[in-house]
Design a protein around this nucleic acid. Structure first.
Lengths: 107, 107
DNA sequence: TTTTTATATTGCAATATTACGATAAACAAA
DNA sequence: TTTGTTTATCGTAATATTGCAATATAAAAA
């Protein structure tokens, strides 16, 4: 085997895992932080910012977009990417929910 | 190639990516949610809860423990696992920081 | 239309992850 | 010491990810 047994887990668990997988790579964390820094939305100079070739960056952007972490709007020849606030809030509330339920009754 | 170029990213970006990678699998999301539900700490009946063999669960627990998402205390023959509240708070504040900086000046 | 600019896709080699049977290790109880 | 219980590790097959050169696509500019 080797394939993930995702069919045995809930849809929500799979969706969360997909979100985390999308940001489980340092380049994609760096893309998120760069998009946060340049608060107007930037397209392809992410390629200049990162030590990765253009096809690699394009692939990383695609993965972030597929799970809804970023959005991309076509502006002429360029594409303007930005963070999706809804997804960020969803992730924030997931962890704040865990933190508030954790009554530190630990081993 | 194929290896991640992690040496070109910051230590913090790599650490965050490692945390997200640890929870980027539905079984590991399920383990976190199970540990949250049974608020006293449970050891090996995670194996009974999940549709995975014991060595597979053990491996998942190891990955969660390596990055500090869970803690494990030896209690006789068994090991008592629980969530690490510090790490959960770290993740919560990461996303709340992003959300608060995001002024929705988007494309 | 041709050229330029910006981004996406394809194909593939290198590497990493996933899952589990078999086995080992650690410890308590008999 | 032997047995039973619990968890970890090893080895390995199946599959997924990463990165990039080459190439394709799409839209604006000339």
């Amino acid at each position: 085997m080797g394939a993930s047994k995702s069919e045995f887990f809930s849809e929500q668990q799979n969706e969360l895992a997909s979100l985390f997988k999308a940001i489980s790579h340092p380049a994609r964390v760096a893309i998120i932080e760069y998009l946060l820094k340049v608060d107007s939305c930037i397209c392809g100079d992410i390629v200049n910012e990162l030590p990765l070739a253009q096809p690699t960056v394009s692939q990383h952007l695609k993965e972030l977009k597929n799970v809804g972490i970023i959005k991309g709007n076509i502006e002429g020849t360029a594409i303007c990417y930005c963070l999706n606030p809804d997804t960020m809030k969803k992730l924030e509330s997931y962890f704040s929910g865990i933190s508030s339920e954790l009554k530190s009754k630990c081993c």
